[in-house]
Design a protein around this nucleic acid. Structure first.
Length: 424
RNA sequence: GCCGAGGUAGCCAAGCCCGGUAUGGCGGCGGUCUCGAAAACCGCUGGUCCCUGACCUCGGGAGUUCGAAUCUCUCCCUCGGCGCCA
């Protein structure tokens, strides 16, 4: 959520931003109209309340009689007008809130202006693309040959878009989670395991609600949602808090399943590149405003170190204005190269949300004792999404005989095992 | 799920029955004093705005009233007891 004062002060800046983000500017005009009317009514009610407060106190001191009755009658009219104005304001408030909750964050000046993913900028690539002396297979072929992922039986349990890891596949998943969390621990993050089910307030806090509401699983009876990303429960842990300045920065990491309905997205239906439920390790940082830009670089480095450790080729993308998600001021995607598919797979998204989420979730700090509290800045990044890391490992580490070599850093987590071979 | 007790400022409490300006303590910050500190004393210590001032704020929302922390309804949360249960 943007500061409404910023919107009022320079609406044209917001208009340009919306255009750069490929969004309609109607929302801005609706906001401005509702806001000015709302403000006028607020002022009117403010002065009416002042009168009522003063007169009510006088009434309490008047003796019973005609004078008192007349004063009460007069105040009854004032009360009625206040109530009528409140009623009008209710509708305006709905429009105002709806608008302000749907206006995206302002991109940082270093973000390239562009229409869609074609305009994203490749910052750099890392790692050699392996030369194969055979035709590399796709991950689902490898996985099915090795019997480490069962797609068909998972469908019986949950439907399409779900999968079941098995044997060394399940063990590899667990090894990856442990490796990620241990690395983050060394990078100074505190591990948390928050609830997997989140409420609407939390989703508003991080910006998934209302604009992504149709892409989440909703538990109607309790009006709860299945977590779409650990960013939601972790960031909202500090909802409505004023954090001590000396406690910042706070660095949290969490391993949590994530759920996405993926409506209307039909690409990559085969395999585990796009699925409804996937595990992810997430990093979240709560920082002082003046430190959030260097913190974004650090966060990205933390994620990159995981990939480097696994020795997977990857590239860093700087997302353009049109492709960036709603709450971001700036976002880097880390994409792993998958040679079987011959494609780049997004395994991490590292973003600075500046004060956008903090304002929605009301997370503040006090710059100096007795000074007004101010919003902190929040950042998060995947470190990393499990399925796509799994895909990249299977495809990059596959051998001619159908086996897969286990990356060295994961072997300690798998009792020293070096390869995943076909069971006889 | 049922019954009971609660939710008041950073923290702890009073006020609620019986409606009339949000009361005290702790902690924190500043000042006086001191070589310095402690103690003592004084002041400050929720939010918004068009900031000499006003309005809002007692878990959320609605209602009654000239006026609601206080009365009524409703929802949420915490604690305790009972029931059910992996």
């Amino acid at each position: 959520m943007l500061d409404v004062n910023v919107i009022r002060a320079d609406p044209e800046k917001i208009r340009t931003m919306l255009i750069n983000r490929n969004k309609s500017t109607d929302i801005l005009d609706r906001f401005l109209a509702a806001d000015s009317e709302w403000r006028a009514l607020t002022d009117r009610n403010n002065s009416l309340r002042k009168i009522r407060n003063e007169e009510s106190l006088k009434i309490s001191k008047l003796p019973k009689g005609e004078e008192k009755d007349a004063a009460i009658k007069k105040m009854r009219d004032v009360g009625d007008e206040i109530k009528a104005n409140d009623k009008k304001m209710e509708d305006l408030e709905l429009v105002r809130t709806d608008c302000v909750l749907n206006i995206p964050n302002i991109p940082h000046e270093s973000v390239p202006i562009g229409k869609d993913s074609d305009d994203n900028v490749v910052v750099y690539e890392w790692g050699e693309h392996r030369k194969f002396d055979f035709t590399p297979k796709q991950h689902y072929e490898i996985a099915e040959d090795l019997d480490i992922i069962d797609f068909d039986r998972a469908v019986k349990v949950a439907g399409s878009g779900f999968y079941c890891l098995k044997g060394d596949g399940a063990r590899l998943e667990r090894a990856l989670v442990s490796y990620f969390l241990d690395m983050h621990h060394e990078q100074g993050y505190t591990e948390v395991f928050p609830p997997v089910v989140v409420n609407k307030e939390a989703l508003i806090g991080t910006g998934q609600y209302p604009n992504l509401k149709d892409d989440m699983y909703h538990i109607e009876k309790d009006d709860m949602f299945l977590n779409p990303t650990a960013e939601v429960p972790v960031t909202n842990l500090f909802q409505d808090e004023i954090l001590a300045k000396e406690d910042l920065p706070i660095k949290y990491t969490a391993y949590l399943p994530s759920f996405r309905r993926e409506v209307g997205k039909h690409a990559d239906t085969k395999g585990i590149v796009r699925v409804h439920e996937f595990n992810k390790v997430e990093m979240v940082r709560f920082v002082l405003p003046e430190t959030s830009w260097p913190a974004l670089e650090e966060l990205r480095n933390d994620a990159e170190d995981l990939i480097k450790g696994l020795n997977l080729p990857y590239r860093v993308l700087l997302l353009c204005t049109g492709d960036m998600s709603f709450s971001c001021a700036k976002c880097f995607d880390l994409e792993l190269y998958a040679p079987g598919k011959d494609a780049w797979l997004e395994a991490s998204s590292c973003s600075n949300f500046t004060d956008f989420q903090a304002r929605r979730a009301r997370i503040k700090y006090r710059p100096e004792p007795h000074m007004k509290s101010e919003f902190i800045h929040t950042l998060n990044g995947s470190g990393l999404a499990l399925p796509r890391t799994m895909v990249a490992i299977l495809e990059n580490y596959q051998n001619k005989d159908g086996s897969v070599t286990i990356p060295e850093v994961l072997r300690p987590y798998m009792k020293g095992q070096e390869t995943i071979c076909k069971k006889k």
